[in-house]
Design a protein around this nucleic acid. Structure first.
Lengths: 156, 156
DNA sequence: CAAAAATGTTTTGAGCTTGAAATACTTTTG
DNA sequence: CAAAAGTATTTCAAGCTCAAAACATTTTTG
């Protein structure tokens, strides 16, 4: 028991960081909720589906399920269901990997490419609108800042 | 069809904002995943439960279900299940609102207060650690920045 | 005051998420 | 080469999430 204000509830520094975190979380959740809503109403899709398609767009040659879950940083079992549903809609295909009967490669179909292109363009416009408060300079500087944090957290 | 690089895939500005968003999302998700993991292993709890308890701690007099879902910005039905489980564990109670048989007030029990105090202290230490890259000045400035964004999104 | 509108909550159905267990196949090793 | 270890994926159970529908109760209004 000291007479310092930091004695209960952490230091002044930890308080400032906590405030930052709460604001950051609120912002991120707000933007995310808006994206989710627009994907739902305008494309009948979801953020996880969009994320999977974005990853597959980047890796034209296709990705193994495990690689996909690695890139997206979500659990293995999670990806199974999302890919199942994308496959039902004809947006992705599972291809057997020759020489390893355990693995399958997931790839965007032509329909998947086309659909993703439409969604990605809209997605970029939405972000431009939602983050309109940030100038190019601010955005660039801030992005660099976050990179540090990310690299700190995990061994990325 | 112009010869400008912006013709396909948005403007330079929208690209910078998109990059910012992707970094921001990655950081927030990284911190969130770490918090979730620690709440799970060290307290056998979850982030949504922590959020509900934090809201109830702030409103000592208790909150109606609808107020709770308003404060937390999650759907009504969502809160029902979380409160159900917190009640099973004896951390919150539902109290009938006199004069309105539709509504119930949710309040932390003494056990709930004590448990939340322990978790909140740990939570603050974790954030201090995870956001150690940000000085107090940076954190404060950045928090203010995010406030703008948040106020822009919704009419908060 | 009875019908209609509004308010407060829970239920429902579909999808996302995790960690852990189960399955299936491949590679290593004794 | 068979057992053991390792790798790739799916299944499972529990919980979170939403929007929409269902219920219950209160308030408003014709």
């Amino acid at each position: 028991m000291s007479t310092h204000p930091e004695a209960v509830g952490g230091t002044a520094t930890s308080k400032a960081r906590l405030r930052l975190w709460l604001r950051m979380l609120k912002s991120a959740r707000g933007v995310e909720a808006e994206l989710r809503e627009r994907l739902r109403t305008e494309f009948g899709s979801t953020l996880p589906r969009f994320d999977v398609m974005a990853a597959l767009e980047r890796f034209e040659a296709g990705l193994k399920m495990s690689a996909l879950s690695g890139v997206l940083r979500v659990s293995n079992g999670n990806v199974t269901g999302i890919v199942d549903r994308l496959a039902e809609d004809g947006l992705v295909v599972r291809v057997q990997v020759p020489g390893d009967r355990r693995a399958t490669l997931v790839r965007l179909t032509r329909k998947g490419h086309e659909e993703f292109a439409r969604q990605a363009a809209a997605h970029e416009r939405w972000i431009d609108e939602l983050l309109a408060d940030f100038s190019v300079e601010d955005a660039t500087a801030l992005a660099a800042r976050f990179d540090e944090v990310t690299h700190r957290e995990d061994g990325a």
